[in-house]
Amino acid sequence: MLKNRIIPCLDVKNGRVVKGINFIDLQDAGDPVEQAKIYSDGGADEICFLDITASNENRDTIYDVVKKTSKKCFVPLTVGGGVRSVDDINKLLNCGADKVSINTAAVQNSKVVVESSKKFGSQCIVVAIDAKKNDDKWEIFTHGGRNNTGIDAIEFSSKMESSGAGELLVTSMDRDGTQVGYDIELMSKISSKVNIPVIASGGVGNLDHLVDGIKLGNASAVLAASIFHYGKHSVKEAKEYLDSKGIPVRI
């Protein structure tokens, strides 16, 4: 039986972890390679890096991070943030990323998704959808949540599936950082609309939220950042909890 995945996400800025695991025994708490290794040793099903480097001159730092991490972690590595072109995707894959997530570029020009999935295969193309509720619909935001495009998120998810995306990483902008749980309605609407796996993101504050994301939101995988970073829960605890709730996980 296919297992639901737990994916810890690390924010990386200028090659350093911004929000990270708060372990005192870490030699270098800002080292993304070391943190990724802790997660993969702890049973993380995948690792996700979100590059939030703002300046263009420091953008190359992520390549070095990916290169080093992929030599030490032998679970899938997804990298996103600032991916603009087929060439960016190619570079990340060559450095050892297994999947690349595309956000703003996919909204601005769906050809990037079409071309990259043809060139590298759908298995490595994740489209990241940042959505915010507006009345009875969800609208897509780009540029790290700064720009409202007015595009309907549910329809867009379907378009991305037909463009060749292998997975959708759906983040609720309303919930992100709030720790009150995923936007279940958004997750389940998108999950029933498309036939590719949906990764739920944004808003996890406790382990029950992970359960809800899978059971109620029908997500194939759940992504979380802060509940793992600050030592509140380990990936292992999360898995044992999901298992106790009857959710199939890899233990």
Binding site: M1, L2, K3, N4, R5, D45, S122, Q123, G166, E167, N195, I196, P197, S220, A221, R250
Partner: peptide, 16 residues
């Protein structure tokens, strides 16, 4: 065979 959408494709993740 995704059994009319019952199974998501690609088959992605950890399986026994």
């Amino acid at each position: 065979d995704n059994q009319n959408g019952k199974f998501k494709l690609p088959h992605i993740g950890w399986n026994e």
